[in-house]
Design a protein around this nucleic acid. Sequence first.
DNA 1: TTTTGAATTTGCAACGTTTCAAATTTATTT
DNA 2: AAATAAATTTGAAACGTTGCAAATTCAAAA
Lengths: 340, 340
Amino acid sequence: MAENSEKRPTLRSLAEITGLGISTVSQALRDSPDIALETRKRVRLAAQQAGYRPNRAGVRLRTGKSNVITLVLNPQDGNSGGFSNQDGSSGFFANIVYGISDALANTSYHLVVTPYSLSDPMAPVRYIVETNSADGVIISRTQPDDPRIRYMVENNMPFATHGRTNMGIEHAYFDYDNAAFAREAVRRLSQRGRKRVALFCPPPMLTYYLHTLQGFERGLAETGLTGFSVSTVSSDSGLEGLRAAGLELAHRRDAPDAVICTSASMVQPLILGLGNGNMEIGQDFDMVAKPISNLIKLVQPKVIGIDEDFRKAGRELANMVVARIEGTPPETLQVLDSSY
Amino acid sequence: MAENSEKRPTLRSLAEITGLGISTVSQALRDSPDIALETRKRVRLAAQQAGYRPNRAGVRLRTGKSNVITLVLNPQDGNSGGFSNQDGSSGFFANIVYGISDALANTSYHLVVTPYSLSDPMAPVRYIVETNSADGVIISRTQPDDPRIRYMVENNMPFATHGRTNMGIEHAYFDYDNAAFAREAVRRLSQRGRKRVALFCPPPMLTYYLHTLQGFERGLAETGLTGFSVSTVSSDSGLEGLRAAGLELAHRRDAPDAVICTSASMVQPLILGLGNGNMEIGQDFDMVAKPISNLIKLVQPKVIGIDEDFRKAGRELANMVVARIEGTPPETLQVLDSSY
DNA sequence: TTTTGAATTTGCAACGTTTCAAATTTATTT
DNA sequence: AAATAAATTTGAAACGTTGCAAATTCAAAA
């Protein structure tokens, strides 16, 4: 019956409760040394009892700080390559989001997820900067020369990227060491006596395409194996395209006896396609792939590979942006992860 | 060189530019009939030219409206059932997010994704209500008696759910018609001459477990088939558990000749397990499953089933919350989707 | 005591917006 | 031309917060 006061407490109500001034309460809650220790304790207690939560809009209006980190979506993150409800993306998007969530959970930051724009990849980033709607940004699918990054640097918006660039700009990133992966993949195939390796590349516009290729070639040089790369189909291609590519491979005169996959979604279609061409895994060829999910481990146990921990990537990226916001220089926020 | 005025335009600057009062500008931009049409046009133009964007913090502080929709994460959404980087979830999470994004793109709403709390499922929802940090909420993994829903109704926070409840409370939901699916699944199996059906249930605490079971039993009754349900393992179980369950099934004296899967992540492990027990799909048994991804269609073409459009679910849910916010009664915001 | 200075607290303004009552302008009627 | 009504515009207050200069309190020094 009796309305339970109904409105949530503000600095003003705390001031009334404690008999202090509003600005005293404000400073006390932020532990300013200007305020007597005794007072600070008293205010904290009162705030606690009243269930006080600072009003984000008030803070934001006054300070300009939004306490928001925005994750910019990419068209393909959700469902690798335009085929819908695809489960080959190895939970990339979900896990990144969960990781970011984890890391942000005990900070004051909220995570906003913003849509992409097919027609203009710059649009989301520009919006964020222009409206100042976030204190920091996380982007993925990084390209060697990425206009989004140039733009954010110019407008000094703190950010971290999943993947690197080649622009001579220092920035925070978390990247998997795909060069090391590709190199080690070739080595392992060599150890198993394989001679000719087919590399199925990542999408060519992305930076890690280059790294993968470099590692691959280095591996070939070191082991003396021969090989070639396939970039007509990529993880962004359709599944049927991949299967067909596998079949085509099997029919070549110089068919490979080893395959490297740079995307989880490639594994099963390729094995199927090669199988259509009478090439059996473990028998006629070996396959190294990354990332490798538990499902693949179960249904295709002969595939050699490791999983990529996207959740960890998310956590690291979130921590990086926060550090950038707090002024940590980008040079110290660069992680090259290799599980090998 | 010359600082380009540097600050983004506000109502005040527009007022100065146009020579009008601040409140005139404010009302003009919101197309208030109190303001002369001529003036409205003039203001709109000026706003456009100056690149004016309303300050969200200002609006929120003044009106209490956050222009935020929050999606509450569930522990399992990202990676079905605790095994990490799992790709059996059929892109559920990613696609829901993309769908919501789509729908929200041409509204003033931002999408915030908030972490779950394993220890207290109510925590996220309570936080949102207490701090008024969103105008509307979307939740999933709905349970027959779901305390989150009771709480949001009591505190009249607009929301929409993925899945239904059994609480006698009307609320906005989008649900797949799992009863219809299960019933139709039995029918199809019957048409193929199958006699004994094993149903692999959804997690028992979720509402659609009940619907699935109802449909299943109705199907059995209509066709005269026999069957049983397995709920010791579910889509939240591990992959190896599923494989083992498949094997165990094959070894039973009364082994089934038909299987229904209620989660994409079950399909391959079960087929594998049954195969271990020398039961071949298409031969010794048929399988109906949902949702079925392109990958499954490709590598297990004998599986009968349909895909569930989570992206559409996301879009619908977003539209529903917005409608709820605008006052549409919940009874008219209830969608039972069946693609059969 | 009174003075001085440090320690502590506080009121005011401002951030950008909307609402509302009041002021101003314009058109209509007498 | 004056009076009235209608249409249009506007200033002030408020939302909750923080920063700052000013005010108050208190203890130490003269």
